[in-house]
Structures are given as C-alpha cells and as structure tokens.
Design a protein around this nucleic acid. Structure first.
Lengths: 213, 213
DNA sequence: GTCTATACGATGATAGAC
DNA sequence: GTCTATCATCGTATAGAC
C-alpha cells in the first residue's frame, strides 16, 4: 500500500474534524496537524478552507450518485423489458437506498452526510451552489423518470413531492446523528440501529406521499 | 414607542446578518455597528456569539410553538366534542400550517428559519441540544396525539414517520430560500410564490405517508 | 511541483476603567 | 451598563527551500 499523499491525508483529517466540530469550529491548524502536514499545504492543494470542504464532499458524492444512477438504469431496463413504466417505489428505492447502505457500510461517512446537510442549507449560497451543481444531473434524471411514472400529476407537483422526499431523507440522516451518544468526542453509531428497517420505513413513507392522488 | 433596548437592537441586527451571511460569516463587529452598540455589549448581554444566536432563535420559536399547541388544542377539543380521535390530517395541519403562515406573513422570518435549520444540524451538538430543548415539549405533545390517532402502528413507526414529516417541512423552507434570487445581497421572497398551494401539497404528502398501513 | 516558515489582517473574547 | 484596550486564534498570502 503506497503512503497516502499529503492531499489525501488532509482530506481524511478534514472529513473527520469537519464532521465532528462543524465547519467553523474545525481549524486548519488542527486539521493539518493531524494530517502531519504544514498549514500552508491546504492553500497550496485546495486554495482555501471552503474549497477543501468542497473537495471532501465531491470525493464521496460522485461515487454515491454513480450508484444511484446505475440502479435507476437497471430499474428502467427491467421495466422496459416488461413493457411498462418503472414503479414509483422502484425509482425512489434506487435513489434512497444507496444512502443508508452507504452509512451502514461506511460508518465514518455519516460525517460526510452531515457535511452535505450543512451545504444544502448554507445561507450565504456559496456552498449550496457548489453542492447543487454536483447533485443536479442525478436529481434531474430521477425527476424526469418520476414524471414519466406519474403522468396524471403536474410536473410542479412531482417536483415538490420529490423535494419533500429529499427532505425526509436528509432528516433521517440527522436522526441517525442524534442517536449518536458517544459524547461529542468522536463519531460512532450505536450497534443496534436497524438500518434496513429505517430504510424500508422511509421508502414506504415517501412512496405513499409521492403516489397520493 | 419606547426606544428599543441595546439588547433588542443587537438581536434585530443579528437576526438579519445571521440569516444573510450565515453564522461564521456574520461578525460581531458588523452586528454591533448596525445595532449602534459596542462590541463588548454582546458578551455582556448574551455571553458569546453562540448564545446570541440562541437568544434570537428563542424569541421566535416560543410564540410559533405556542400557535402550534393552541391549534392542536382546538383540534382535540373538536374531536372530543364529536366523540372521535382527531384525524392525522388535522393534527399534522396544526403542526405544519403555522410554519408557512409565519413565513408568508413575516417574510423576514425566512432568515430565522434558516437559522433554525442550521441549529438542527449543528455537528458539534451544542446548538442542536439547545434547539431540541426548545422544541421537545411541543414535539412530544404532537407525537403522543399522533400515536393516539394511529393505534394500529407501533410507537417506533409513528416516531420515524413524524421525523420524516419534520424533514419534509424543513426542506420546504430550504426550497423557498433557494427560490430567492435576490442576488445574495438581501433576503426577499418572490411575490408569485403560492404559499397556500405549497402548504396544501406538503400536508397532503405527509398525511399520506403517516397514514400508510 | 511540493512543502515550509513566517507574517498579516480580522475575529471572538475578556479585563478593567468609568 | 457601557466603553477602551488588549489578547489569542483564526484563515489567508507569500517568499523561498527542497
């Protein structure tokens, strides 16, 4: 195994500390100290603290959205082979399920999802715009497929309901974070959380809301 | 009209700047300058920047939750008079509706709701704990009423679905913020947003998900 | 190309005079 | 209650070593 590059070591330390302390409480001095790098290396490799944040996000969002789109592709193929539209549940499952699987398989990614949430609501707009740029292509593909499976609804209503779905999903992640009672000292998820049960409940909830006449 | 106290002037200026620039981009020097107060007055009146943030939140959350509980009380009274359980939709309406009415009637409160969102997901936990402490009594009252109206569901499932509901609501507020194209220079909501339509769609969505068998 | 040492301006916080 | 002065720490920028 090759020694991780300075760039990667900074990103690893940053992901951990941003998730633990939030953006403005995590200092670059602490991040670089843990990474064994010089303070100035952040600006050399990333340009600024904000850009470092964005790079850490992108590292995980891109593969996650890849999984989502791949599953959506399979759902559409199967439906086409059977000469039907994909069901709303199939589409929403392709979108939602990878999220909780991601957290379940890689618990440290919970911190990454908290960073995502912070981005979504960045009041100043800078981070939100960057994040939306990363998400937009995937979101649009699902949105259009959902419109195809819900032809009796106006596109505005489908859009709103898709946003409600995203909100439910985002808040589920926050719920998981709140269940973390490891005392603010480190990130951990209790062993006894049934991810698959939460996942099924979430899919049931949003499918029902999305299909409402 | 009495001259607003220094304390109140700082809170007004803080609410505006926190909403506009986010927590860590809004500086106490700018806030106190606008409020016509001295920098040190923040620490004297509130203790810290974080505590100022919390005080601004509490000022609006308390009356908002008052409206929610009052409406829930009327819903329960009506149902009791008719010898039935309140419907899920009645309960969720009492919880959800005041939010969008608040924003519609008081557009500058959109900033306050962005502050709420920031609190919900504060990774370090400090703000989240404070905020949850403010919300908990109201949340519990609605949770118990919902359990009463959904006796065939386990309490865990009702709880999860209530969390999904809150997530949808929170993301709706973020949606409104994203529709704000006033150029990051000031807060404003486009005139042509139909709050009541969004409100009805949201209630329809969460009621359907909550009632799912 | 990478990395380091160092310096600069701005910030949140605090102590003490009034 | 309010203000001035001061402090440690922060993100950032740059000059120069390897």
């Amino acid at each position: 195994m090759p020694e991780p590059s300075t760039r990667n070591k900074i990103m690893d330390a940053g992901e951990h500390l941003f998730a633990l302390n939030g953006f403005h409480r995590a200092s670059l001095r602490e991040i670089t100290a843990i990474a064994g790098a010089n303070l100035a290396a952040v600006n050399y490799h990333f340009g600024s603290k904000e850009k470092l944040y964005e790079a850490i996000l992108e590292r995980r969002i891109t593969p996650l959205n890849g999984i989502r789109e791949e599953r959506m592709g399979r759902v559409i193929e199967t439906a086409e082979a059977e000469n039907r539209q994909p069901s709303v549940e199939e589409l929403l499952r392709a979108f939602v399920e990878p999220t909780l699987e991601f957290i379940s398989n890689l618990p440290e990614s919970l911190g990454f999802f908290m960073m995502v949430n912070r981005c979504i609501m960045d009041s100043s707009g800078v981070q939100r715009k960057y994040f939306m740029g990363l998400m937009q292509p995937t979101l649009m593909k699902f949105y259009h497929s959902l419109c195809g499976s819900l032809p009796h609804l106006s596109r505005e209503v489908v859009y709103m309901r898709f946003m409600f779905t995203i909100g439910s999903m985002a808040h589920t992640i926050r719920m998981l974070k709140m269940m973390d009672h490891s005392g603010e000292k480190d990130l951990a998820i209790p062993d006894d959380i049934d991810f698959s049960a939460i996942n099924e409940e979430l899919i049931k909830f949003v499918t029902s809301g999305m299909e409402e006449v």
